[in-house]
């Protein structure tokens, strides 16, 4: 098991390095950093100064090493817009995004798992068919449009919930959190539901597919033949097998939730990383863009690693084989 974890760690490092190359090439070679960095009205001397400052006159491999060096120190340069270190800006906004993504994932699980289980266990009921058609809708609805409609109904028409910002926050573990105040939760509700919609459908469909795959298995029949109560057959024999794909997907989808939060954050003016990156792309704030991308790469690699470990723990076939 230790060797397999080490092997996965090496793979993870490989992915990070590969992504730095891709991001580097993307930003510095395909896009012309001179155009991005320098005011088009700048004079020749100014251009030369900036080029020298960023080392753009150096050969590519040296530039890459410089880039890597900065990366290792978490130094991505100062934001053009805010004039502060880019990484600091990202980190400041990370808790808001995490909070949103975790809330959305929780909602998606709370609704998706039981509904999917129900639809899988009783596929012929009308209610199951309704759930499944609903999930197709959830799949097809563009998130950003749903966000607007949520605002229209719950804020504009009904006036129940606020439309933007995090509301009052409280500090916990050195970061600010909305869910600790009542008003904050009211602010969190709409964005979290908005972000959760797509994932709810996904988890629901996945759960149902899993149930339908597991139910006809002989071991489920055998469990019934032992005289187990139906409750135990479902809760232990079916669910435990179901958890393996579900955990994998939850890990992956959590990352995707963070990426997709750009949309929800833009709509609800949620002050997270996503809102920052969109503003940065619009303003061509290169250091922030690079910092965000590298942050996401790191996040995904860590997530994938955690999923692998969870998977190993959940599935005895993997766990025990790698031990041998």
């Amino acid at each position: 098991m230790v060797t397999s974890i080490i092997r996965r760690l090496i793979q993870a490092v490989f992915v990070v390095v590969a992504m730095t190359v891709i991001v580097f090439i993307g930003v510095n070679v395909i896009g012309n950093p001179v155009d991005i960095l320098i005011n088009p009205d700048a004079n020749q001397a100014e251009r030369a100064r900036v080029i020298a400052h960023y080392g753009l006159d150096q050969p590519l491999w040296r530039q890459y090493l410089l880039f890597l060096q900065g990366l290792l120190h978490g130094d991505f340069g100062d934001s053009f817009v805010y004039g502060r270190p880019a990484m600091g800006l990202i980190l400041e906004r990370l808790p808001a995004t995490l909070e949103l993504a975790i809330s959305a994932l929780t909602i998606a699980l709370v609704f998706g798992l039981p509904l999917g289980l129900y639809a899988g266990l009783y596929p012929n009921r009308v209610s199951s068919k309704l759930i499944m058609s609903g999930s197709i809708l959830g799949f097809s609805l563009p998130t950003f449009w749903v966000g607007l409609m949520l605002i229209m109904v719950f804020s504009v028409e009904l006036g129940w919930l606020p439309t933007n910002g995090r509301g009052p926050t409280l500090e916990l573990f050195g970061a600010q959190w909305s869910f600790l105040t009542g008003e904050g939760i009211r602010h969190l509700l709409l964005p979290a539901f908005n972000l959760a919609l797509f994932k709810t459908s996904l988890i629901l469909r996945l759960t149902r597919a899993g149930v339908q795959e597991v139910l006809p298995q002989d071991y489920v029949k055998f469990a019934r033949a032992k005289g187990l109560r139906e409750r135990r057959v479902i809760a232990v024999h079916v669910l435990k097998n179901l958890m393996i794909p579900v955990v994998t997907i939850i890990g992956l989808e959590f990352g995707s939730l963070i990426a997709f939060s750009v949309v929800t954050e833009s709509i609800f003016a949620w002050p997270g990383m996503g809102k920052l990156i969109i503003d940065s792309i619009n303003l061509l704030d290169r250091p922030v863009i690079v910092a965000y991308l590298m942050m996401m790469v790191l996040l995904f690699v860590v997530l994938n690693f955690i999923i692998d470990v969870c998977y190993t723990i959940l599935d005895p076939r993997v766990r025990l084989d790698s031990k041998a």
């Binding site: 002989d218 071991y219 055998f222 033949a225 232990v236 024999h237 435990k240 097998n241 959940l314 005895p316």
Partner: peptide, 12 residues
């Protein structure tokens, strides 16, 4: 049952 490889639950 017929096939012992699928009679027992693999994760228990």
């Amino acid at each position: 049952f017929q096939d012992p490889t699928v009679t027992l639950n693999p994760v228990l």
